[in-house]
Amino acid sequence: MANKKNNNYISKDKIGNNYVSKKQLVKSNDGREMKDNDGINEKNTSSKNIILSVKNASYRYSDASENDYALKDVSFDFESGKIYAVRGRSGTGKTTLLSLISGLERCTEGEIIFDGKSLKDMNLDKYRNSDIGIVFQSYNLLPFMTASENIILSMDANGLKIKNKKEKAIELMEKVGLKESYANRKVLRLSGGEQQRVAIARSLSYNPKMIIADEPTGNLDKQTESEILDIFKKLAHEENKCVIIVTHSQNVCDAVDVIYDLKKVKEENKEV
């Protein structure tokens, strides 16, 4: 495990991130910094390269009562070149947080700042098809399309103007470990791992600054999980992307640079 972490930081060092800590940081949504396994906390926050800040974000469903929050007063920062895990038990608001930072929902209170701009002031459709890529546990590919068509669809949604989109799609597929011959296969003929690779390739099609993944390895075996995580690590550490993974998986948590722990709102209230 220690080797793995060291490897991670070697990668980060290569791309010049100013990390003081060489250990994994664990923070919780109640604002407390928790000790990691080795009891060392993150330091030197002034030199952070923050791409996304969640500032006192709360979310309450429209049909919920006044104090019934799905997510309450959460503040996290996400930096480029790092891979994050957002973890928590069921009902802690992981998916809600993901939907807020991916622009699928808007905060009821607080705000989310992406690259210096509040999401409140941004066109969220444009945000989703330019600035971030989203990867889901169930892949969410269009089953009636081939692997390359799914990727091209995303390029089209972005309005990307390149001559040979299929060539670009194949290039992306190869980047995530899929052979060219998969390009013309209907996605339903691909395995779970292959579909997830296509989903990742799709999310990279317009070269976003941030990848948000919701349980991306939840449906995959350990070997495939490991391969998928490697892809994410490369994207973070070699291409300076910010990768946020919402997960239950300890394997994923072990692989990331920073873990954000979400606690149930009610529990938190009790603690307060």
Binding site: Y127, N129, N140, L142, L153, A157
Partner: peptide, 13 residues
């Protein structure tokens, strides 16, 4: 489902 996917990848309403 198709609508959900297309909206998620940023295609406007």
């Amino acid at each position: 489902y198709e609508i959900g996917v297309l909206r998620t990848i940023g295609i406007s309403k």
